[in-house]
Design a protein around this nucleic acid. Structure first.
Length: 329
DNA sequence: AAACTAGTCAACCGCTAGTCA
DNA sequence: GTGACTAGCGGTTGACTAGTT
């Protein structure tokens, strides 16, 4: 089958930048007749362009619902989050950002976000830490340099520091529990066990972006460290004296997309994002299926009963977007 | 001030999937 | 089932701009 070329140069069709007059003609035509019929539209609208070009121009720049201007922090978070789930499926990503086009997102990714991720030591393709791949060699890195970058935000310095310094609010639900688990239990549990659990599967709904920072101080704790770095939807990082590893996870929930939960002091573990009850239940189910984990967990709980106020999330039920903005302001 | 370089982004190209006759 | 056609997607290009030498 021989395809008919969409744009026949020999027909004298124009290429290159659109003029205001052309835009006006296109907008006027689409407003009168609606979208579609792109192949025949140019002729009817009096444009010397191919239909494909008209469709693109309309879809990317002339549509009234298009949002122009700088990407917001939240939008960037969403892009990174969605990209971790969809990869370079720009159209799919664009569907998650109303008013933004696939082309715009693609450009922004390639010119800004990708570079920033690389700069922070994060592979923009796998969303895993580039440093973690060499975790075995990290012992040789000077202590001061053993800092695993946290990703996700639109700005390099957007910050955990701010979170750390914010007023701490007490938590009471699954998030608080998980923080205690992370704080205490994470130091002890066998890494492979925890990795299995965290990456053990579950329904995926939407993507999320989470950064989990963990620091374990004692030398002996190194062997029992773990990190939760989901390849597809939950981005977490964990460091143990600077050593970072990663493993896939399956938490999901758009609500988690706001990176706002907790960040403890530097000597402790914590989830920087809020985990809602649905996510928690998913984790719980995975845990229950793992007897080894449950044994460890039982031990942890016994110890935890007497000491559960040690680690509280900074943030837990903050669902107002303005408050989130203030958080990073 | 001119030349060069790097960054940005609008637009194009090639391809695929879906639909219809 | 096949071919023609449309819509849409993702990768790439190239014009333009800003910054640097």
């Amino acid at each position: 089958m021989v395809r008919t070329p969409c744009c026949k140069a020999e027909l004298g069709l124009k290429k290159g930048a659109w003029t205001p007059e052309e835009d006006q003609k296109l907008v006027s035509y689409v407003n009168r007749h609606g979208e579609g019929g792109w192949r025949t539209l140019p002729e009817k609208a009096g444009l010397k362009r191919c239909g494909k070009s008209c469709r693109l121009r309309w879809a990317n720049y002339l549509r009234p619902d298009i949002k122009r201007g700088e990407f917001t922090e939240d939008e960037e978070r969403s892009i990174i989050s969605l990209h971790s789930l969809h990869g370079n499926k720009w159209a799919a990503i664009a569907r998650g950002l109303p008013g933004r086009t696939d082309n715009e997102i693609k450009n922004h990714w390639n010119t800004h976000i990708k570079k920033r991720l690389i700069k922070k030591g994060v592979d923009p393709v796998t969303h895993k830490s580039l440093i973690s791949d060499k975790s075995e060699n990290l012992q040789e890195i000077p202590e001061k340099q053993k800092v695993i970058p946290t990703i996700i935000t639109s700005d390099v310095d957007l910050d955990i520091e701010k979170v750390k310094n914010s007023n701490k609010k007490s938590g009471s639900s699954s998030a608080g529990f998980l923080n205690r688990v992370a704080n205490r239990f994470g130091k002890r549990i066998n890494q492979s066990v925890l990795s299995d659990i965290i990456g053990s599967g579950g329904p995926l709904t939407t993507t999320t972006t989470t950064t989990t920072s963990v620091t374990v101080n004692s030398e002996s704790d190194k062997s029992s460290s773990s990190s939760f770095t989901p390849a597809s939807d939950l981005l977490c990082q964990m460091t143990v004296n600077g050593n970072a590893t990663s493993s896939p996870s399956t938490f999901s929930d758009a609500s988690v997309n706001d990176s706002l939960m907790y960040c403890g002091n530097e000597d402790n573990l914590g989830f920087t994002n809020f985990l809602n009850d649905e996510d928690f239940m998913m984790l719980e189910e995975s845990c229950v299926d793992n007897t080894e984990f449950m044994k460890e967990l039982s031990r942890f709980l016994e110890e935890d009963v007497n000491d559960n106020d040690e680690m509280m999330p900074v943030y837990e039920h903050q669902d107002n977007i303005n408050e989130i903005d203030n958080y990073f302001a």
